[in-house]
Write a protein that binds this DNA or RNA. Structure first.
Lengths: 338, 338
DNA sequence: CTGAAAGCGCTTACAG
DNA sequence: CTGAAAGCGCTTACAG
């Protein structure tokens, strides 16, 4: 226990008060030194810092936030953690946060449910965060109102196909769908299939689908057959729906998927069934996930910039005026499956 | 704008004070009603709740926490978000939290770096969380000390092969490695290869490796060849290291991977190179990720329970005494690749 | 360059 | 069943 002798006292919680007492200065001086605010004599600073270290003092941010009426918390609401796309956005947010004066993310999940989102945001706002970053434009009226009435910055991430409450950072999913259609038509594909997941709560996948159809219409084409799962997107759903589509009566020579997870499932199904890609059928995804890129035949897809969206969301919330929309773009990845 | 007439006043932030004033009661009464504490006359409650709704009052949790000296925050530190395993743990934590009186997770990333973890935990403790959930047993001395001195509950997740600071929830990675070795030896494999990632900061992968070797030793065997990436685990690293191992001089008939990501990379390499699995070489992973399960040949692996670990961590922190270790177990998944 | 005082928005004994 | 008062641990004008 001798090793513990120079450690902070076991129990007694140490506050600015104790530090001030021990250092023979006022609480305000301790506070100023700790926040590097205002002019401080060098020896005062040294004396105080020594006491701070000796006592193992950790400022209480709850008290600090209450007193200064601002917190360094950023509320983040994402729809799900099971789709790797959102953890990637979180990584970007985390990277953006590292450049700040140690802001902290408070993360919640909305499960693609606007009612749940409303509750979650209510709980978040109670912590008086500096900003709330949420996903997409679909919110309940009450959510929208809470956000408008509060004076926190709001960033709606992923999508820029509508007008933001405050700031939007993302890409145009409609354009991505359109670009997919144009690209595939130009490559000579004519008989289009579509394999999707439950789009009821996935506005962005719906927008991509609409964009795709517009491009096909312009070329005098349409989607000849489709198979849509009742569940969220997953590799398993992609396998199943691909099997269903290919077992149908309408022949297709290219399948556009609602995203890469579904498309990887499509590739797995074709491998199992001895269907050659892209000879028998071509496959095109969306997102540009690493798993698709690493497959023996790299998945043809559109790369979205999830990390960039998260990082930019933080930067924008710190610097941009209300009404800003930032397009993080996308790019077609040729790959080997279409 | 008539629709906005009944909405809360635009600016003036509303506090208990305003609610109390408008409802003709004291602040303490408002506080009691909002927290369902103590006896309250029915009509008082109704009257106050009406005002609360009318004014759109949202309690300030920062003030609440400071006054009551306890927060509903739970600090969570995970090493990374790029390995899907940790988002899965977060999902479990989220599920566990839903059963509580709306506690909120504050999530930070340590990037497998004990120094960074120390800073992150320091920042977290400043928020006086109810508990800190972190990953594994590897911490700096300072981290360990902070955690011990603070009176927050501490859960170390994923691993149970050491003694916890407070509570540990996870599985024995040594046993999992051992079980892998036994299983594969029993199935008749004799020439073992190992493909891994950078294990310097990954104690659990090291423990699995040690367990595997023990099992092999007991059977009079050893690892004949290995290829270890300098980077973190990924499908790409798995492809590359598998190629390297199979190009070496030492023939192997089964490869044990440090985890499923690496193993999936191994499968992809074999597909590209026309190597048949498990005929030419068998493949065995660790984790039981969905992607491995969905492949045309389901990946042989060990299933860990990441979701359960997260969920149990929350439950344990609420109910279990210090010193508790909870084994969430694992199971061998036969699959088709070994 | 430093200190005394008020206050941030709640909660919690304590009294009645 | 309800209220007045003190206090949680900081920060921020204001004075000097």
């Amino acid at each position: 226990m001798t090793a513990k002798q120079r450690l902070p006292d076991r129990k007694s919680k140490v506050t600015v008060r104790e530090v001030a007492l021990r250092a023979n200065v006022s609480e305000s001086t301790v506070s100023r030194i700790l926040r590097n605010k205002g002019p401080i004599a060098d020896d005062t600073r040294e004396k105080v810092m020594e006491v701070v270290r000796a006592m193992g003092y950790v400022p209480n941010r709850i008290a600090g936030s209450l007193a200064s009426l601002n917190s360094n918390l950023v509320g983040v609401i994402i729809p799900s953690l099971s789709n790797i796309v959102f953890p990637e956005v979180l990584q970007g947010i985390h990277a953006g946060l590292e450049a700040t004066d140690n802001m902290q993310a408070v993360i919640s999940i909305s499960n693609y449910d606007v009612e749940l989102e409303e509750n979650v945001i209510r709980g978040l706002l109670a912590w008086k965060p500096a900003a709330v970053l949420t996903t997409g434009f679909e919110h309940s009226d009450a959510t929208r109102r809470m956000l408008e009435l509060s004076d926190v910055r709001v960033v709606e991430m992923m999508d820029i196909d509508s007008d933001p409450i405050d700031i939007a950072v993302g890409m145009s999913h409609r354009s991505a769908g359109y670009a997919t259609g144009r690209h595939l038509v130009e490559k000579g594909w004519r008989r289009f299939g579509y394999v999707g997941h439950n789009l009821d709560n996935d506005r962005r996948a719906r927008l991509r689908f609409e964009g795709l159809r517009s491009a096909l219409f312009e070329a005098g084409l349409d989607i000849a057959a489709r198979a849509v799962a009742g569940s969220a997107s997953s590799v398993g759903a992609g396998k199943q729906m691909t099997a269903q589509l290919l077992d149908g009566d309408t022949p297709v020579d290219v399948i556009v998927y609602s995203n890469d997870d579904m498309a990887v499932g499509g590739v797995f199904h074709c491998q199992s069934a001895g269907i050659s890609i892209p000879g028998d059928v071509a496959v095109f995804g969306f997102n540009g996930l690493d798993i698709g890129f690493q497959m023996p035949q790299p998945l043809s897809t559109i790369r979205s910039n999830r990390f960039l969206i998260g990082k930019t969301a933080i930067e924008a919330m710190l610097t941009e005026p209300a009404g800003t929309k930032i397009d993080t773009g996308f790019e077609i990845f040729e790959g080997g499956t279409a």
